[in-house]
Amino acid sequence: HSHMSHTQVIELERKFSHQKYLSAPERAHLAKNLKLTETQVKIWFQNRRYKTKRKQLSSEL
């Protein structure tokens, strides 16, 4: 499990705020920019979407 830097997370968050789903080319581009693997980016987005979904569910209770 590799640790992401604060800067990388900020960039991922910024991208996520604009779009929740990335196409393969977008993911490849973002990964390259942030010096991450595409898998890391993919998993981060999956986890981030899951967290957002959970938060929405709990706020509706």
Rank of each mutant, 00 (worst) to 15 (best):
K32S: 07
Q19H: 08
L57F: 08
A28E: 07
W44S: 02
H6Q: 10
H18C: 15
K42P: 00
H6W: 12
F45L: 00
H29V: 13
Q56I: 09
S5I: 03
T39L: 14
K35G: 15
H6T: 07
L36F: 01
L61Q: 08
S59F: 06
H18T: 12
K42S: 06
Y21G: 02
S17F: 15
Y21I: 04
P25N: 12
L34A: 02
L30I: 07
A24K: 11
R49I: 05
V41H: 00
R14F: 11
E60Q: 12
R48I: 07
F16S: 02
E11A: 14
A24E: 08
K55M: 12
Q19M: 07
R27E: 04
S17I: 07
Q40C: 08
K15H: 12
A24Q: 12
I43E: 10
L57T: 09
E11P: 02
T52E: 15
T37I: 02
Y21H: 06
Q8G: 02
H1V: 10
L34C: 04
L61P: 09
N33E: 14
A31T: 02
L30D: 01
E38S: 05
T37L: 04
E26M: 05
L12K: 01
S23V: 01
L22G: 00
W44Q: 01
L12Y: 02
S5R: 07
E13G: 02
H1F: 10
L61A: 14
R48E: 06
S17G: 06
R48W: 05
P25D: 14
L34G: 01
N47K: 14
F45N: 00
E38Y: 05
A24F: 11
Y50C: 15
T39I: 10
K53V: 07
A24S: 06
A24C: 07
E60D: 13
L22N: 00
R54I: 11
K20G: 06
L36K: 01
L36E: 00
Y50Q: 13
L34Q: 00
S59I: 09
E13D: 03
N33Q: 15
Q56G: 11
T7A: 15
Q19N: 09
A28C: 11
S2T: 12
Q46E: 11
H18E: 14
E26K: 04
L22C: 09
I10K: 11
K51Y: 11
L36S: 00
V9L: 12
